[in-house]
Design a protein around this nucleic acid. Structure first.
Length: 425
RNA sequence: GGAGCGGUGGCAGAGUGGACGAAUGCACCGGUCUUGAAAACCGGCGACCUGCAAGGGUCCGAGGGUUCGAAUCCCUCCCGCUCCGCCA
């Protein structure tokens, strides 16, 4: 969430920044108004409390000195002050609640560097790598779900029987490929990031810190009896590792990575990309994450993007990098880049990674601070990126590595994970 | 799930209705001493809100309640430990 002090002192600048997302900014006006009222109420209450405290001390002294009548009078006066204070407290609680609810729903302000735009159609393509459209043969122009069925490495029919629509199951070399990709991505990043196996069922507080709650509750799986949520990405538990803590500046940046299953209800997506495994309710992903001091954020962002590009490039896949525009950014994002791989079978660019800088938006929601050299405490910045989202990379590999004479090769960098085989199928 | 015991500052740990935001120790920071360091000694040392400042206010797991006054009493919940049950 945004800093209420920033909203108070720079309301116009905040509104201008949010307007670049193409959203209504009347919430900011309302927040400024509520904030003024809250501050007024707080100062009145502080004054009353101060009087009550002084009065109570006097009561104690009077009673000790045996002056019962005077003590009784002071008690009565203190009671009256207490009643007034109660009234103010009630109003203050109402105002505080409205402020909190509003703040949780106001999105992050985009970075000045983020390009303007209204939708994903406006995202500038920063670069295209390894891509030559004429290099693909007819045998590579077959969608992965056809190849998957042909070679028995994808069995979605049975996945649907087991779990319903939009679930997927890989078998044999296809299953090996999915697991190999996870291990490959972890190994690629192990020199920079601490490996973590976090819980994948989390509390509402955890899901609120990253921004999925309260606005996007419908997108997540909820286990009602236990009030737990299935994570949509490892970003969720990783961000909450140090929630409600104050970090030592010397420890920053702190970097974590995790391979987890991710669960998404994907409401409203039926009918598009539902074949194969491009869009499913459950998939595996390796996520990289960092807590940094604000001045370290841009460098960390560049480093993450670079690492992710190298991971994809070394798999021998064509990819491109998009600079996400203000109209397409997620609620919590301050700056964001997408990496898309080229899937020849369907002639599509598939989003396999999103590298994002959240400024202090998530840190404030999760109360994650550090002690800067200047003294006191300040909010950290958080960043994360998908190091490798398995299903779409799986699809691109199966299509790209399909041989003209039949069979599917293992990309060189994955050979160590294939038990001596050099064939996926 | 049942029974018992707990939850206090970075850590350990006192405090069971009245000057407690909280003793003490450790850790940490500054200083004295020393060629340097250690030791010793002196001083400092929580977070947050508000205010130009002086100051005022909030926070002892969370939320409610009793009281003139709550870390302290009562209720609910959460978490931890021990034992039992169950279990990969």
């Amino acid at each position: 969430m945004l800093d209420i002090r920033r909203i108070r002192t720079e309301a116009d600048a905040v509104k201008a920044a949010l307007a670049r997302r193409g959203i209504d900014t009347s919430d900011i006006d309302r927040l400024v108004q509520l904030d003024g009222r809250q501050r007024q109420l707080a100062s009145e209450r502080d004054e009353l409390r101060s009087q009550i405290k002084a009065m109570s001390k006097q009561v104690g002294l009077l009673r000790r000195d045996g002056k019962a009548e005077e003590a009784e009078a002071a008690q009565q006066e203190s009671r009256d002050l207490g009643d007034r204070e109660q009234g103010l407290a009630g109003e203050a609680a109402t105002v505080a609640e409205e402020i909190h609810d509003l703040l949780l729903r106001v999105p992050n302000t985009p970075s000045d560097d983020a390009p303007d735009g209204g939708s994903d159609a406006d995202n500038p393509v920063l670069r295209v790598q390894n891509f030559d459209p004429d290099s693909f043969g007819e045998h590579q122009r077959i969608p992965h779900w056809e190849l998957g069925t042909r070679y028995g490495i994808l069995d979605n029919e049975r996945a649907v029987k087991i779990s319903g629509a939009m679930f997927t199951m890989q078998r044999k070399g296809g299953a090996t490929l999915a697991r190999a990709l996870l291990q490959y991505a972890l190994d690629r990043n192990a020199h920079r990031f601490e490996e973590v196996r976090p819980p994948t069922l989390v509390t509402s507080e955890t899901l609120t810190a990253t921004g999925q709650l309260p606005k996007f509750a419908d997108d997540a799986y909820h286990l009602e009896r236990d009030d737990l949520w299935a994570i949509p990405t490892a970003e969720v538990p990783l961000t909450s590792i140090h929630r409600d803590e104050i970090l030592d500046a010397a420890d920053l940046p702190m970097r974590f990575m995790a391979a987890t299953s991710c669960y998404r209800r994907e409401a409203g997506s039926a009918g598009r990309d539902t074949r194969g495994m491009l869009r499913t309710h459950e998939f595996d992903k390796v996520e990289v994450f960092a807590y940094v001091a604000p001045e370290q954020a841009e460098e960390q962002l560049g480093e993450m993007l670079e690492g992710i590009e190298a991971t994809i490039a070394d798999l021998g896949l064509a990819y491109r990098v998009l600079d996400i525009c203000t109209g397409d950014m997620g609620q919590s994002h301050h700056r964001s880049f997408d990496v898309e791989v080229y899937a020849p079978g369907t002639d599509q660019w598939l989003e396999v990674s999103s590298v994002s800088w959240f400024s202090d938006y998530q840190a404030r929601r999760g109360n994650i601070r550090y002690r800067p050299g200047s003294g006191g405490t300040a909010m950290v910045h958080t960043l994360n990126g998908s190091a490798l989202a398995v299903p779409r990379v799986w699809a691109a590999i199966v299509e790209t590595y399909h041989r003209a004479d039949g069979g599917i090769d293992v990309p060189d960098v994955l050979l160590p994970y294939f038990r001596g085989s050099d064939r996926i199928a």
